[in-house]
Design a binder for these strands. Structure first.
Length: 501
DNA sequence: ATCCATGACGCGCTTCCCTG
DNA sequence: CAGGGAAGCGCGTCATGGAT
């Protein structure tokens, strides 16, 4: 029985219950669809997001109604909203959140670039609107989970996801590794001292490009192991990474082992630049245990002294939105980004390093001035620095800034993410669909796949594109100022300025 | 003998580049 | 702009050599 149309006022709205798997109310005159009860007798997964039912339904309309439908309600808009409803129901989202996503999609639909999108991409854009609204509402679903559950190709989705962010000028917050430290370590109950030292090591790791592009939990576990054995008695063999994981019920994996090696390598190389370190060490772990507290304390200066490659930080969304150049990005506080850091790995011959050439701190005496307060401030470091390690072989290598550091060859770990996402999800009521058995879903994938692996890790590469710098060029004063601000504490900058004058 | 770290290899995923 | 292929990267597994 026909009823009145909300749009044209004609008594021509019919129900299409007879159409397979679809229940709609549509006007035969103007083609308008009653949005309420748009979908009914089908499960979210049953259709697999095809649009066959919608097309089937259209065939049931009169020719004039089909024409009107095309004019008044663009197919892409209609099917996109349909997709939003389905995805929203899949994730059991509230009506308001689904409406928000639909509104976002409607606004997006007015964007001039949308016309170039194919229908399949429009459907992905619609799904992206849902995902964005979920993220905005603090529902921490990783992108890949969302795609897997929705039956969407993650790579195709991420392109459109980023397109929406760019077009609509939306900024999302990405979980930082710092925010995950407590979550990962909480079950082990390592204590605040170990946790705090772990956080400092993580900060160093971020600037040494150990974190970027990698799963967070292996980095955290590896760092916590180093912090733990540094702050506890020498347990000999029992201090091995494997035993540590066993004791504290972490899932030992190759990525953790690799991250541990990288962190050790990095700390070792940085530590050799400490002006009061004399001689060369064969046992990196013994050295790191001895000087770790000092190395993390002076990480900014050590990194600066060691070498400087500031990166494009590529934090996906921030960069895209503001259309800022990589060099602009670092001005905006790169430190909060998981994707940013300073690369201390594998210097190629043509890679740029920045020394203290503009300051007077190149010789050891001035370096000692910069680091001098360490022996007052650092409780363990002071005594440690005065002791001569047993495996020292006197030479002068320490006075040169080494230019190679941690090797990569890195791995990713997913099993230990269980507790991370378990915790995250547990704190929210979005736990309806969880694929805990699928390890591939448990990676660190909040970052869109197409931006997950920042390839340009070096400063000169980052600025090359926008500023025409060559890797052999000297950094300008402005660049060095940027770098200075990025990697040094204010106190250190002041001290260097004083030395200059 | 056992444990541990690490190299080699294959798989899957991501990113880049080219073509239509 | 979209799609497909190639290359790069991370991870898991197995094997091996050194240390205890």
């Amino acid at each position: 029985m026909a009823s009145k149309c909300n749009y044209c006022g004609e008594d021509a709205v019919i129900s299409t219950n007879d159409a397979p798997s679809v229940s709609m109310r549509v006007c035969q005159e103007c083609g308008s669809v009653n949005d309420e009860n748009f979908i009914s007798d089908e499960t979210p997964f049953s259709r697999g997001f095809d649009n066959t039912s919608a097309f089937d339904f259209k065939q049931s309309l009169s020719k004039s109604a089909r024409n009107a439908l095309q004019v008044t309600t663009p197919q892409g808009l209609k099917l996109g909203k349909n997709r939003i409803t389905i995805v929203g129901q899949t994730f059991k989202l509230g009506v308001s959140l689904i409406d928000d996503a639909a509104n976002l999609y409607e606004r997006l639909f007015r964007h001039p670039d949308i016309i170039h999108k194919t229908m399949s991409n429009k459907l992905l854009l619609a799904a992206a609107c849902v995902y964005i609204k979920m993220r905005e509402n603090d529902l921490p679903f990783p992108l890949r989970w969302f795609c897997k559950i929705s039956g969407i190709c993650a790579n195709d989705f991420s392109r459109n996801f980023l397109f929406v962010l760019k077009c609509m000028d939306i900024k999302l917050n990405y979980p930082s590794i710092e925010s995950e430290i407590d979550i990962v370590l909480e079950p082990a109950k390592l204590g605040s001292k170990v946790t705090n030292l772990t956080a400092e090591i993580i900060q160093l790791c971020q600037k040494a490009w150990i974190v970027s592009g990698r799963s967070h939990s292996p980095v955290i576990i590896a760092a916590s192991h180093i912090a733990w054995y540094t702050l506890t008695e020498n347990k000999g063999r029992k201090s091995s990474l494997r035993d540590y994981c066993k004791e504290f019920k972490f899932s030992y994996s190759r990525p953790i082992s690799d991250r541990s090696s990288e962190i050790h390598e990095t700390i070792f190389e940085l530590g050799k630049s400490l002006p009061w370190v004399i001689g060369s060490y064969k046992d990196k772990k013994l050295f790191n245990r001895k000087y770790l507290l000092e190395i993390v304390k002076y990480r900014e200066s050590l990194l600066y002294n060691h070498q400087i490659e500031v990166t494009e930080k590529l934090v996906p969304v921030i960069d895209m939105k503001s259309n800022t150049s990589p060099s602009d990005v670092k001005e905006k506080g790169v430190e909060n980004s998981d994707n940013s850091s300073i690369n201390t790995e594998k210097l190629c011959p043509n890679q740029k390093t920045v020394s203290f050439s503009n300051s007077n701190v190149k010789d050891t005496s001035d370096m000692n001035k910069i680091f001098s307060h360490s022996k007052d401030d650092n409780i363990q470091g002071a005594s440690a620095a005065d002791e001569r390690p047993t495996d020292i072989q006197p030479n002068n290598e320490h006075s040169q800034n080494t230019q190679e550091s941690c090797s990569s060859g890195c791995k990713m770990e997913s099993k230990s993410c269980d507790r991370v996402y378990g915790k995250l999800s547990a704190s929210k009521d979005v736990h309806e669909v969880v694929y805990e058995s699928d390890s591939t879903l448990q990676k660190n994938i909040f970052i869109p796949p197409i931006l997950k692996k920042p390839r340009k890790r070096l400063y000169y590469e980052a600025v090359e594109d926008t500023e025409g710098l060559d890797c052999n060029d000297e950094l300008s004063e402005a660049h060095e100022h940027d770098v200075d601000q990025y990697i040094r504490s204010e106190e250190e900058i002041k001290e260097i300025k004083q030395l200059k004058h």
